[in-house]
Amino acid sequence: MQGAVDPLVFQLSIFVLAVFVGYYVVWSVTPALHTPLMSVTNAISSVIIVGALIAAAPAAMTQSKILGLVATALVAVNIFGGFAVTQRMLVMFRKRKP
């Protein structure tokens, strides 16, 4: 074997392992909570905001910066809306009163 491992291979390893983690974690989700599962996965996939913020960061107004700011605002809708609506649903799931 020669040379150093490309960072891409490390990322691919993380990705593949995370798919397996996702597989086992999601099968353990109770079917009654499948709707909150969708809304919360939607909220966390909005972590794509990190990419939008990098584009929005430079001081100069460029095409990238405008794209970044628009994307930031769009996924902010998802982040706040997604977590809030998930919480609203989860609060409604109550046990029978004894």
Binding site: F15, V21, N42, S45, V47, V50
Partner: peptide, 9 residues
């Protein structure tokens, strides 16, 4: 964070 989240979702 993005790679893991993407894989989970």
């Amino acid at each position: 964070a993005l790679i893991v989240t993407g894989a989970l979702v």
